[in-house]
Design a protein around this nucleic acid. Structure first.
Lengths: 201, 201
DNA sequence: CGCAGGATTGAAGGTGATCAAAGCATGTGG
DNA sequence: CCACATGCTTTGATCACCTTCAATCCTGCG
């Protein structure tokens, strides 16, 4: 998958293109055709689906280097929106050379890994375990300094299958127990890795 | 993946083999090396993992024709056990011709689909929704006659992230509402598809 | 400085977990 | 063939946790 052959914006129908999105902009819609693959260059995005009662389930968060847009059905089960301003490359997924197919398998594998991790998260019983595991896996990308969260509480809640309030309360508790510190709502640092790890088990 | 080149039992270290397992027998262990792929010929199996507190999470149920054993990590995150007596073919997954790799991609895709469906299930909020969706997707394989469940209540509970008692109570309710009928604990028939479908959304 | 959306906190209620016991089915041995 | 043992399922009672609804508090930004 040669996502690096970037062209200018506005050529979405071409084989390969690079497009910028502003925060909260939609990259593709739930229900649309699954005919393209996307690689995130800069920023962060979120995939989410709405069930018929209007409840939202966040599928995944993607970060620079991640490929998204791969699904097993011909129509997108999840829509994707930009969490922050971001730069996205995309190609038509039907334009397959042998080389690309080989990488497609790798992308599928990556996606399977992501979904499997999410499954473990949702399988956890208590809110503490879920939140702890979420913070842990997010903080892992930056073990030393403070980490900036691109998503809001609602996104986290819908990702973990919890209510916003429960997420908020749990974060407050973890702070009171000095397990994590939140200098701002969207920025945190793990202060007690051992405790957090034990919680998430 | 030529899982059809069966040989006799007892040649597990060979390239391809067919083995019979009795109900409750272990096919492979959580933590073992992920070096083989399995195709279920007859019977039903269950994949499950234990977290460090001893809680069990059922990953999936597999039925004749399904391929299992594919995982993204070098060590099995899930162990697999026979639910009923069954016949299993397996091959070394490292013995890859081009042809086999092409099919490996397809297996990965199938697995991704299964895991994604499970994710939707676990994302559901209420026990009713979960149980309804489980029955629905299981009954889909046999729309007319009664369906025999190869797994017990505990398996269902661990698959849905619920307690056995909640599963049992929910099934009782669904029976009282004449949505499903259980002539025996392990055999059921959907009597009101529309209602069940609406529950599962 | 003031506004708006997000985040937090509070109170009340519901839903599912847990603990405990009883009911059923299957299989074994007397 | 019946009695009993065993394991699975169901039911009951209580409790903890999470959700919901509501209000207040931030904080980032114009």
């Amino acid at each position: 998958m040669q996502l690096s052959k970037s062209t200018t914006a506005g050529e979405r129908d071409r084989r390969c293109s690079t497009v910028r999105y502003r925060a909260n902009e939609e990259i593709y819609t739930q229900g649309g055709k699954t005919d393209r693959l996307y690689r995130l260059r800069e920023g962060a995005v979120r995939s989410a689906r709405f069930n018929s009662e209007g409840r939202r389930q966040v599928g995944n968060f993607y970060y620079p280097g991640d490929v998204f847009g791969l699904e097993t059905e011909p129509e997108h089960q999840y829509g994707v929106e930009a969490l922050t301003d971001c730069v996205v490359e995309s190609i038509s997924s039907s334009s397959g050379s042998e080389d690309e197919i080989a990488t497609l398998a790798e992308v599928t594998r990556q996606q399977l890994r992501k979904v499997s991790e999410h499954l473990v998260l949702l399988g956890r019983k208590t809110a503490r375990e879920k939140v702890a595991l979420f913070l842990l896996s997010y903080a892992a990308r930056n073990p030393d300094a403070d980490v900036e969260l691109p998503m809001n509480r609602q996104d986290i809640a819908d990702y973990l299958g919890l209510s916003v309030e429960t997420v908020s309360r749990t974060l407050t508790l973890l702070q009171e127990e000095s397990v994590v510190a939140f200098p701002a709502a969207r920025r945190f640092r793990v202060t007690r890795w051992d405790v957090l790890q034990r919680m998430a088990t």
